[in-house]
Design a binder for these strands. Sequence first.
DNA 1: TTTTATAATGAAAATATATTCATTCATTAA
DNA 2: TTAATGAATGAATATATTTTCATTATAAAA
Lengths: 199, 199
Amino acid sequence: MPRTEEQFEAMRTATRNKIHSAAIKLFAKKGFAAASVKDIAEGAGISIGLMYRHYKKKEELFNELVAYAAEGLERVVKRFQSDESPAELIQAFTLEILNDLDKDDEYAQFHMLMNQSLGVENPSPQINHLNKQSELLLNQTARLIEKGQNLGQFKQGNASEMAFFYFASIQGMTMIKLMKSERYVTPNPEIVMAFLFKD
Amino acid sequence: MPRTEEQFEAMRTATRNKIHSAAIKLFAKKGFAAASVKDIAEGAGISIGLMYRHYKKKEELFNELVAYAAEGLERVVKRFQSDESPAELIQAFTLEILNDLDKDDEYAQFHMLMNQSLGVENPSPQINHLNKQSELLLNQTARLIEKGQNLGQFKQGNASEMAFFYFASIQGMTMIKLMKSERYVTPNPEIVMAFLFKD
DNA sequence: TTTTATAATGAAAATATATTCATTCATTAA
DNA sequence: TTAATGAATGAATATATTTTCATTATAAAA
């Protein structure tokens, strides 16, 4: 008599998706505290009540997005574990990020969620997991750089410092893209990787 | 009969300083919305009431700090207008920033205030001014890089992209320093300036 | 048309945060 | 001592934000 379960499922998925894109946009740009539930519901084009049917707490929504971000990071970690040439891995990854930043805000938003999560005082399990992944990636990148140095692909220098600088620069570009998109310019990949590759 | 005006003045200055350092710490780390007046007062070791004797609104306090940040930026803009060698100017500036980041959080906090100000919807005059200064600095740096390229000091490449990348990388390092200081490592200045200087 | 299951709404209650203000405190010198 | 002055306090009030929940809307099939 009423709708089928699949139909209800589809409705729920649709509103969840609307909530997700509105929420990540606002969390990324304004931060958890400054992004109000009202704003999010408005952005998603639904009522506040419906938001609470899907998420008991604002925090629960945030954590779900954080979990997605962590999944994305895990995929990168896996890629960096491959046996391919360090030079090619890093080059491909860099090109992809620059391309993503150019294209739309999705990458920047998820990256920003990562930043938001770094400084939280009572981190949820999801936040802890995301933080672990991002630290893992940093260490792994350092090892990848060392490997590339041994192969003569990269410049010499402290690999941890280089990995740190690499992610810091991506972080900075990401932030500007999100906060002041009109100031963002896609830099030539050679500029971004100059610290790594010999001229 | 009561205290002299100088004494009162000294008291006021003292509590204002306490408020400033607590506030910038919290604003930089958590953002305007998430840094509560209670937190700030506690951080400064004073009562909430006293805070309001000095600042009518939380926003007024924020704006005062933003104005300080703008002053700092103006000084950098002036430095970059000098006729000195571009290579020396940028090198000196970079070393100074890396040193500041290493030393304490003050630079990072003011830099972060700049970021916080970028995305505000109804910017105060102070915020507008800060934003203008930071854009000015970006453009000026691009011109400085061009000049250095013409002098053969720097690598070839799009100067605006290079200037953007330079500040983005500083931004990223700053953010990590503030949000996750245990993950911060001072990179060798050569890494930071590799995109500019030939090997 | 009526019944049914669940999505969707929005006003009300709960909670948190910002702001005010009557009062107290501390210091100085008459 | 006491009067004078302004700093300092924190409980009370105002405001904003989150969360709940009784109610309504919708679509499918009997």
